[in-house]
Design a protein around this nucleic acid. Structure first.
Lengths: 130, 130
DNA sequence: ATATGTATGTGTAAACTGCACATATATATG
DNA sequence: CATATATATGTGCAGTTTACACATACATAT
């Protein structure tokens, strides 16, 4: 396994990370799929896949956290413009709570990763071989 | 959707979070599945599922990041005691890098979530209704 | 022989996601 | 009208991950 391959393998985003990112963006301004693809880059989605994004938006509307309407006045293909709902703002708050909890877990990880000396002895941590 | 249901829905753990947690624990002392179930609680796995843990351990051994041997000397059922390999320590370092990157993304999220006033106006953020 | 606690493991189904592919509109060009 | 291009939205499918239920096995006590 090369260094590059390992890095590609480790995708450190929580499941559905796209959902709170979209909600947070829509809380500030209404937007549509094609534009959201650019904005999500700041949150770790450097090469956002269109299919994933549009599917997520539809799922979110089905769940009632966003709503949409067609916008045809701007020239070019029609855009489905999304806005956040009250349920969506509440859901975003849940995500914020959960993310704070998770951040504490990651802190535990880093304290143990950097703080303590590795190769402590508790069991018999085979000193030689296996 | 009740508050409880929503909370259950939002699981803010990255994919394979169990992997670095196991590696980090094994870096300090050798251990086995049943014992690891308790230790993972500190990292957000409060009700660890045995099946998930054992399957993950086997997958990790297949990938060469841990190795195991049977221990039958302690009384009770035999334990498969795992230890981290050199490849495992290197893999743990990759995870640490990725987690730091991810933490930056979460920081961006929280700055936007708490820092700025919601309901800014950029597009036409429908002032009234939908 | 039965029950209990310890310990490891599999089968299956649901959810999530990346990749490839399909569709549709507006504009420019010939 | 025909074609190409940029914009914009959407579906099919397959691989991975994971939760839940279930199965297996050993040691000890009674």
């Amino acid at each position: 396994m090369s260094k590059e391959e390992k890095k590609r393998e480790v995708e450190v985003r929580p499941r559905n990370w796209l959902v709170p990112v979209i909600l947070l963006t829509l809380r500030e301004w209404n937007s549509y799929g094609y534009e959201l693809m650019e904005r999500t880059a700041a949150f770790g989605f450097e090469a956002m896949n269109p299919g994933t994004l549009y599917r997520t938006l539809r799922q979110m509307e089905k769940n009632g956290v966003v709503k949409s309407k067609w916008e045809t006045s701007k020239g070019g293909p029609a855009r489905r413009v999304y806005s956040i709902t009250d349920a969506g703002e509440a859901y975003l708050d849940f995500w914020a709570d959960a993310l704070e909890q998770y951040r504490r877990n990651v802190d535990v990880f880093f304290r143990m990763y950097t703080g303590r000396p590795p190769r402590n002895d508790k069991n018999d941590k085979e000193g030689g071989d296996g």
